[in-house]
Structure formats: structure tokens, C-alpha cells
Design a protein around this nucleic acid. Structure first.
Length: 697
DNA sequence: GCAAGGTC
């Protein structure tokens, strides 16, 4: 007789078994690994699932019918992740079913979180014959020997509320996501003139993520650059140049900037204040999935999805720990010294690893985030044989691990105020006094190290020769577009999606052609189709494109978990609200479809700042500028301030502006301005254009 | 050809 222990994945089964004692591995039917181990006089067979083996299926199987509200749990079928998933799940289910027959008791040892509770629940209920409530739960926060033993010594009743909350989460996501996606796709079909089908989708995570990109794109398109002026000055002391900027970083009036320039040109400065400040920079915290994805993007421009795929490979080759983790913690049980000894045997890391080993006391600088089943990502210490991007990602992980143990770095910042005719200019010096952890993180810490600026030694009252004062006209910039990495960070911040799925969701939005690489300036831009989907959802099912749905769902599921709410009531309430949204789609399906359809076909408006060369002075460029006095937008020449070019023209105050490729015969640019729904008006910018003619676009 | 969530 034995107790069957059900784990979430093969790797966890191996670790749990070996934590309990000396385990013997064998192959069960379908060749999945099973570990026999005796612990405290009891025989255990430790087996595992491979993530979710069961999922929700639509009983009707007809993908053109909605709403689908009648769902059941069944072995997963081959989905979008490719063929073979169903066969793999069947292999695990068959093997576990056989093992269950000989078991007299069951332990649920999947990851101790909501999703893990569901994975174990399904297996114990469906593969083991309704054993969930009779099973006992092993609760651990990381899979270390001590914690696993502790969990088996203090087995608890299964958390039925948690399982119900998780199962309801699956239900709600399916009901909202599948139904609204079907409604979208079918309204597109109804509204398009060729009756074509287009695979459209929306969901609790896709929706808000797309809305982030669309809202940002709108901000960018609506941005009107405001002019401002920047003053800077170069001084000299003992042959060394001191670069300084005017104390006000932006001067919004040209007259004011001119006045300061005139007052300061050719006049020497006097040092009026010198202050130095030590800044201590703690070592970085170890990587969780998102941290690694962001850093790999910053340094190598790798997409989050690609980084995770590479990390997955490194993990499968036993070079790094499990890469899907929220944790920023490295418990001592991973054995720092052992890992460092391993790294000391790799020539690239031997010097830093030995340095750390010689210190004796090793304390990593941990971050606040934790994960129920895994520590932060760390190298195992096994010598890697890698090249290309795999090497880069490994190197980043290894050096980050080393840096985590490094001393705080100490930098010094010097601020100098320079008085020129009662105008204050500021110069700033930075120096690294002690590099500490930075030495372990080279070259990845370089942006911090390279901020070094050397100033000559300066004292209050020193007189500095004024070499030059310059005035530069600049324009306020629109906000940055999201990159894949910053969009992922935004999702983390808004608490939507999970460490393992965020990159996938972004990839889905690309696949649907809701977002695309921006034509200029890098980053992601929402496409017209993306805008149209957000717009129609905001009108008919607004919660799906808002993070509010996640928040509301979590509130309700919290009630289910605590046993205060019935899952059926929570789902019924959601269905009632969903059905209202779907009613609008039924009534206005064709109209919605036409809107989305025409958006999908329409060209992208350009982001316009410069609209063409100046036909008057022939030197400057015509730009869209917002007047400081009237707050209205107009066209002005960039050569206005420096060259006195007075070329200007009024603009309509509403509607997106695009520039035509052709210039008017009078030499001025032709623009098209959006008005109404999808209509544009083409016109020459020149007020006195002798060829003025309006063209419908 | 539909979600989001596991894992490979």
C-alpha cells in the first residue's frame, strides 16, 4: 500500500521525492516518471502532471454559435499551442489513473497557489475517482528539503474554496473571452462586404493590454508640440571645460530666453555654491521572469517571449533554475557556496565567484516579490557550453546572480552653481567612489558607470571664464510608445496576466494585427483595427477593455475562496451582464462589423510634427506648433527664432492631420484633415495659395 | 479560426 503524491510537473516530483528520502525512479504506463520513497515509515509514490491536464470545453462544439454558457471539464484538447498537447495530457492521465488504483491515500502537492489547486483538484477528481476531498494538501512556499518535509509533517485538508475560486476563474474567462470573441468575429463577417471571416479575439487580459497601447497611441497623435528654449553655457577653469545648463531647464517664452542670453553672453561666472553628496546604490535584486525579460530587452533588445523561450532552454539543460517565477528571493537552501564553486570552475566567472566565496558570509539583496513554488532565477553552477543569444541570456543571469551578493556601490554627486550676471547656471559631476556590485555585473551595469562626469576642483568664489552661451529651440515631445518590455511592465503594474502568459498575450495582439511595430521611432503602435476593437468594446462591453474586470472578478472570487459566495451565483451574475452586451452585438452586428471592417482597411495616419520644408526662407522646416497665447495649433517655420522667417499658416483645430506626399504647385505642403467618421479633407496649407482647390479624400 | 492559465 502506498500514498500517491500528485505534483504539478515532473521536475517538482523529482525534488519533492528526493527531499523526503532516497527516492527510486521508475517509469509508469505512458513512460512518465514515478518516484518511490519511504518517509516517516510510510511508502509514497510521487508522480506528476504536466501543468493543466484538464480544461473547459464547449459541449456544443460549434464555433459559430454564441453565447456558449454550458461548459464542462474534460481532458485538454489540442489547442493553439500546437498538436500533441492532448496526447501528452492523455499519457499523464492514464498513468496517474493506474497509479491511483493501488493507492490507499492521496496527497495534493501541486504548487500552492490558485492555479496549482485547480490542477491537483482536476487530477484527484477526474483521474483518481473523486479523491479531492479525501486527499491531504502539502503546502510549501519553495521546494527546499526542509520545507517539503515540514509540509508533509503538517498535511492539511484541501482548500476547497481555493479550488472553487480557481475553477470559477476559468469559467469566467472562458465565458467572457470566447463569447465576446465570437461576437466580434461574426459581426465582422456580417458587416464586411465580401462576407469574409477574420479571426478576432478579446479577453480579460488582451482587452486592457490592447487598450493601453491604443490609449497611448491616441495621446501621441493628439500631442501638439509646444516650443521651449534651453540655455546652456561652457565655462573654463585651468584649461578644463565645465558644461552647465541654465537653472530653469525649460524657458517657455522666446523673449525671456533672449533676455537671459543677452545678459550672460561674454560675462564670466562666479562659483556661488558647491555641494557634494554620497549616493549609495544597493546591489540589484535577483531576477524574476519579468525582471529578466525587461533587462534582456534593455540590453539585447530581445522580446519578452523570446527571452522566456531561451530561458526555458537553459532550464532544460540544467544551467539555470526554473524561469517562470515571480520571486525575487534566493533562499539559502539553494546553497550559494555550491553554485559559486560551480561558477568558479567556469573561466569567465572564476574570479568574481572566488572573490565572493572567500568572503564567507553571503547575503543576497532580495526584492519584495515572492512565489509560492519557486525562488528567483539563478544559475545552477553547471558549466555552460553556449553561444549567441543563449550565451548572452545565460551570462546576464549568471552575472546578475553574482552581483546580487555584491557590496553596495558608492557614487558621489557634485552640484555647482555658477552665477553669471545674477543668472544661475548649474554644473553636475558624478564619480564612482567604490564600484562594489558593479564589478560583478559588467558590462551590464555600464549605464550607471558611464554616467561619470568629471568636474575640475571648484570652490565658492572661483571665477570661471565664459567660453560660450547657447540657446536652443526645442519642442515638447509626445509620450514614448510602449515597447514589448514596457507593455509587459505595464501589465505587471496593473496586475493582469501572469509571469508565464504576459508575453504570449502581447504576441496574440500582434497576431491579430491589433498592434504592430511602429513605422517610425520603434515601439508598438495600435493599428486602426486595434482602435476599432477597443472603441466598439468600450461602447458595448466596456469592462472587457478595462482592468476593472480583473479587479471585480478577484473581489468575487475572494468571496468564493472564503466560502462566502457560491460559484454558481458569481457565474450567473457575470452571464447576466454578458448577455446584455451580446444583445447589442446581435442588434447592431452589421454596423459594428462595418466599423471594424473599414478600420481594418483604412491606412494609418502619420504622426505629424514636421510637415515639410519652408517655401519662404527655404532653410527652415514647417512644423505644427501650439500657440502659447491662444492655445491654438498652427503651422510655423523652424527658422522663426534664429532666422526671423515669418512663414506661418492657420490650421483647423480638430481632426488628425496627415501630410500628402505631393507638394502643392505653390510650394507649400498639402495636408489631409480627418473630419466625421472616416472622412478626410485635403487642402494646401498656404492661405494665399493661387491654386487652392479642395479635394475630397 | 475564440480566453487565460499551466507546462515542454
Amino acid at each position: 500500500m502506498y500514498t500517491l503524491v500528485v505534483c504539478e510537473k515532473p521536475d517538482a516530483a523529482r525534488r519533492i521525492a528526493s527531499a523526503l528520502g532516497s527516492a527510486r525512479e521508475s517509469r509508469a504506463a505512458g513512460s512518465i516518471s514515478v518516484f518511490d520513497v519511504t518517509y516517516a515509515g510510510r511508502n509514497y509514490k510521487v508522480c506528476s502532471a504536466s501543468g493543466h491536464l484538464y480544461g473547459l470545453v464547449d459541449r456544443t462544439k460549434n464555433r459559430s454559435v454564441y453565447p456558449v454558457l454550458d461548459l464542462e471539464w474534460a481532458p485538454i484538447d489540442d489547442g493553439k499551442k500546437g498538436k500533441g498537447a492532448a496526447a501528452r495530457a492523455a499519457r499523464f492521465i492514464n498513468a496517474i489513473s493506474l497509479l491511483a488504483r493501488g493507492a490507499d491515500s492521496f496527497i495534493h502537492a501541486c504548487d500552492y497557489d490558485q492555479e496549482g489547486e485547480v490542477i491537483g483538484h482536476s487530477i484527484l477528481q477526474y483521474a483518481c475517482g473523486g479523491k479531492y476531498e479525501k486527499s491531504l494538501r502539502a503546502k510549501f512556499s519553495t521546494l527546499t528539503d526542509d520545507e517539503v518535509k515540514e509540509a508533509f509533517a503538517t498535511l492539511a485538508k484541501p482548500s476547497k474554496g481555493l479550488a472553487e475560486a480557481g475553477r470559477s476563474r476559468h469559467m469566467l474567462d472562458f465565458i467572457y473571452g470566447v463569447n465576446l470573441s465570437r461576437a466580434l468575429a461574426q459581426s465582422f463577417k456580417a458587416g464586411s462586404n465580401n462576407n469574409g471571416y477574420r479571426n478576432l479575439s478579446i479577453g480579460r487580459v488582451q482587452g486592457p493590454t490592447l487598450a493601453f497601447a491604443a490609449d497611448r497611441e491616441l495621446e501621441i497623435r493628439l500631442h501638439v508640440p509646444d516650443p521651449y528654449w534651453v540655455l546652456s553655457a561652457d565655462f573654463e577653469k585651468d584649461g578644463q571645460v565645465v558644461r552647465a545648463r541654465y537653472e530653469k531647464p525649460r524657458i517657455e517664452k522666446l523673449a525671456e530666453a533672449r533676455a537671459i542670453l543677452d545678459a550672460c553672453i561674454g560675462r564670466d561666472g562666479a562659483v556661488s555654491k558647491v555641494s557634494t553628496k554620497k549616493v549609495v546604490l544597493r546591489s540589484p535584486t535577483p531576477f524574476n521572469t519579468g525582471d529578466l525579460q525587461r533587462e534582456a530587452y534593455r540590453l539585447f533588445r530581445l522580446s519578452p517571449g523570446y527571452t522566456l523561450a531561451i530561458a526555458e532552454k537553459l532550464y532544460l539543460r540544467a544551467l539555470i533554475s526554473y524561469p517562470r517565477t515571480s520571486s525575487q528571493k534566493l533562499p539559502p537552501s539553494i546553497n550559494y557556496a555550491k553554485i559559486l564553486s560551480g561558477l568558479a570552475g567556469v573561466s569567465l566567472y572564476s574570479q568574481p565567484a572566488s572573490t565572493l566565496l572567500s568572503r564567507g558570509r553571503l547575503v543576497p539583496n532580495e526584492g519584495p516579490m515572492a512565489d509560492p513554488a519557486h525562488p528567483a532565477i539563478y544559475p545552477t553552477g553547471i558549466a555552460p557550453r553556449l553561444s549567441g543569444l543563449e550565451f548572452k541570456v545565460y551570462d546576464l543571469i549568471a552575472k546578475r546572480f553574482l552581483a546580487t551578493f555584491g557590496d553596495p556601490a558608492v557614487t558621489e554627486r557634485t552640484d555647482v552653481s555658477i552665477n553669471v550676471n545674477n543668472h544661475i547656471f548649474l554644473a553636475e559631476g558624478r564619480a564612482v567612489l567604490y564600484d562594489g556590485w558593479m564589478a560583478f555585473y559588467r558590462p551590464y551595469a555600464s549605464s550607471l558607470e558611464q554616467s561619470t562626469t568629471v568636474l575640475p576642483v571648484l570652490h565658492e568664489g572661483d571665477v570661471l571664464a565664459n567660453k560660450q552661451v547657447t540657446m536652443e529651440e526645442k519642442f515638447t515631445q509626445p509620450p514614448w510608445r510602449y515597447s514589448q518590455a514596457s507593455l509587459l511592465a505595464k501589465m505587471e503594474e496593473e496586475k493582469i496576466g501572469t509571469k508565464a502568459t504576459r508575453a504570449d498575450t502581447i504576441a496574440t495582439l500582434f497576431k491579430r494585427n491589433y498592434i504592430a511595430a511602429a513605422k517610425r521611432g520603434g515601439g508598438i503602435e495600435a493599428t486602426d483595427l486595434g482602435f476599432a476593437v477597443v472603441e466598439s468594446m468600450r461602447e458595448h462591453a466596456p469592462t472587457i477593455v478595462s482592468t476593472e474586470l480583473t479587479r471585480l472578478m478577484e473581489e468575487q472570487l475572494e468571496g468564493v475562496e472564503q466560502g462566502m459566495k457560491e460559484p454558481a451565483d458569481v457565474i450567473e451574475y457575470a452571464v447576466e451582464r454578458l448577455v446584455e452586451s451580446l444583445a447589442a452585438f446581435r442588434e447592431q452586428g452589421a454596423t459594428i462589423g462595418r466599423q471594424i471592417g473599414s478600420a481594418a482597411a483604412a491606412a494609418q495616419p502619420n504622426v505629424v510634427v514636421i510637415i515639410g520644408g519652408c517655401p519662404v526662407c527655404k532653410k527652415g522646416q514647417l512644423r505644427i506648433i501650439k500657440s502659447r497665447t491662444t492655445k491654438k495649433r498652427f503651422v510655423g517655420c523652424s527658422n522663426y527664432a534664429s532666422g526671423g522667417c515669418r512663414a506661418s499658416a492657420p490650421l483647423p483645430q480638430k481632426g488628425g492631420i496627415r501630410v500628402s506626399k505631393t507638394t502643392c504647385r505653390c510650394g507649400w505642403p498639402i495636408i489631409s484633415v480627418a473630419f466625421g467618421r472616416g472622412k478626410r479633407w485635403n487642402t494646401c496649407v498656404n492661405m494665399q495659395c493661387p491654386y487652392k482647390e479642395e479635394k475630397k479624400g
